[in-house]
């Protein structure tokens, strides 16, 4: 049994190593955003100048506002439409249900490069063109399947008898939904909404193909900056963006158990 214990400790050590692999580059990148040298030279000298200079970068600030705006609208639309669709799947049995559910898979599984270029071609063809409207159209479509999957998972824990009971007590469909079903599935709806926000806020590939110089989002702007050359300013804005998205996911985890354990 001594071998078992040694192996278990080796296993724990290994997991720590993996966490190091996952987090060290991010930590180093964040640290460099506080380093005075514009060429990332050591020794380390503390500064917040790079963050201060972000405030002067109007292009970046405009892109940030676009990102936030699009993420918020995407969250609202995809949460409402996605929850509605989940309810339909939960309440109704109909032919073709399996097909409709299977159709949620392609937006998640097809590489964004393909989806993004296809959207570019189509939106151009029908006259929507590129820009924020096109980006929003794309983001909602990418977020919808995630919302439907997450809300449906929550609905599986909901007993249909509760809706029956409310109906037999005289509640109409709207009252049943708003007063009985929705409060129960709320954690799922919130988690779905947070997923949608993350999908939109972190989305790069699809936004990249659909943006124009004036109408762009933060990740697209960062990509353009990276390709011009690395500067600590990119580190600063990257650090902010990664802190925001990690905080969001921690929040999501409070509402939605990823591993399905419990």
């Amino acid at each position: 049994m001594a071998t078992t214990r040694i192996l278990e400790w080796l296993g724990r050590f290994y997991v720590v190593l993996l966490l190091g692999f996952l987090y060290l580059p991010i930590i180093i990148m964040a640290a460099m955003s506080f380093n005075a040298s514009p060429f990332y030279q050591l020794p380390f000298e503390w500064t917040t100048d790079w963050y201060a200079s972000l405030w002067q970068n109007e292009q970046l600030i405009a892109a940030t506002w676009n990102s936030i705006e699009i993420a918020v609208i995407t969250t609202l639309i995809s949460t409402v439409l996605g929850s509605m669709a989940s309810l339909a799947f939960y309440r109704h049995e109909f032919r073709g249900k399996k097909v409709l559910q299977a159709l949620l898979f392609p937006p998640i599984a097809i590489p964004w490069l393909i989806t993004g270029t296809a959207m570019l071609i189509f939106f151009f063809g029908v006259g929507i063109g590129r820009g924020l409207v096109a980006i929003l159209l794309g983001h909602v479509a990418l977020a919808l399947p995630y919302v439907i999957v997450v809300v449906s998972a929550r609905l599986q824990t909901f007993a249909p008898e509760l809706e029956e009971a409310a109906r037999s007590l005289g509640a109409n469909q709207w009252q049943v939904t708003m007063r009985v079903t929705l409060p129960w599935i709320m954690p799922g709806v919130i988690a779905g909404g947070l997923f949608a926000f993350a999908v939109s806020f972190d989305q790069f590939v699809v936004s990249y193909f659909l943006s124009t110089p004036g109408q762009t989002t933060l990740p697209v702007e960062i990509y353009a900056a990276i390709r011009k050359g690395f500067t600590p300013e990119i580190n600063a804005v990257s650090t902010i963006i990664i802190a925001v998205s990690m905080a969001l996911m921690l929040l999501t985890a409070r509402f939605f158990k990823f591993g399905g354990e419990k």
Partner: peptide, 20 residues
């Protein structure tokens, strides 16, 4: 949670961090 957390953060930024 720690393992899957970076997965949901910005992929572009994580790639950039390796350049450092």
């Amino acid at each position: 949670l720690l393992v899957i957390l970076p997965f949901w953060s910005n992929g572009l930024v994580r790639i950039f961090s390796w350049a450092m």
